[in-house]
Write a protein that binds this DNA or RNA. Structure first.
Lengths: 123, 123
DNA sequence: TGACGCGTGTGACATGTGTAACATATATGC
DNA sequence: GCATATATGTTACACATGTCACACGCGTCA
């Protein structure tokens, strides 16, 4: 499972908050923020499916998208990668330091913390 | 000043520890670790100069490379970018949480902390 | 029934990055 | 002076990513 790029992360965040959503619905949320045309959103969505970051299904005859992984699992991977390459910290990470980030709830932090530092299950 | 990629960061770390170094010397250090050929190292070096991540000069008739920015300044930018896009933390960052990383000395941490959280000088 | 809107398939092009070879110049030892 | 090594200039190619347009099919509404 390859790491999401910055653009992909923007889409993932939307879908973690609410999924599944159609391309049009995603565009309405991400388009203004990222300043993307609908085409750009669709291309990114398509590539994310290729990379297995998203899965698609059909709802009322329309293609809708959902994340493959939980927010905590994806972000734990992103964070682990970052700290390993930038700060060369491979051991436990001080996740508590970021609890005031708004992107994760307390429960999600618990999951993330477990993934990063807890019992060695990093599949 | 664009952010360094993972490969570029590997070279920067070597040059922060000791600079200036020639392409050959850098290759000796980074080649085995990154599994690069000498060509690859040279290309990366050249692109880093284009991006103003490195500056070149001549020493004993040989081209040598040095970082343009201090470790603290570069890493503070990388960290700020990461926390802003991934965790959406734009305010102060808890740098103290990473002080056990080996990549920065205590003094460098102080500088980094000042850059990230101190008086608003983020040029 | 034909125009229009929307969803979707597909193609395209620029730039960045990883990775490397080929060729040429220059120095060094014999 | 010549061969060999090392340094440097140049070119190449594939894949990732950002960004978007064009065309086609299908349903709806006048």
């Amino acid at each position: 499972m390859s790491q999401p790029s910055k653009s992909e992360l923007a889409i993932l965040k939307i879908l973690w908050a609410e999924a599944p959503l159609s391309a049009r619905e995603i565009q309405e949320k991400v388009g203004p923020k990222m300043d993307w045309s609908f085409s750009t959103t669709r291309t990114t969505l398509s590539r994310m499916c290729d990379k297995a970051l998203l899965k698609q299904s059909s709802k009322h005859g329309v293609r809708v998208f959902s994340p493959c992984e939980s927010k905590a699992r994806t972000l734990s991977g992103v964070m682990r990668e970052f700290f390993a390459t930038v700060l060369e910290i491979d051991g436990p990470l001080p996740t508590a330091a970021f609890h005031d980030s708004k992107v994760l709830t307390e429960e999600e932090w618990l999951e993330l913390d477990d993934l990063l530092n807890g019992s060695d299950n990093d599949d």
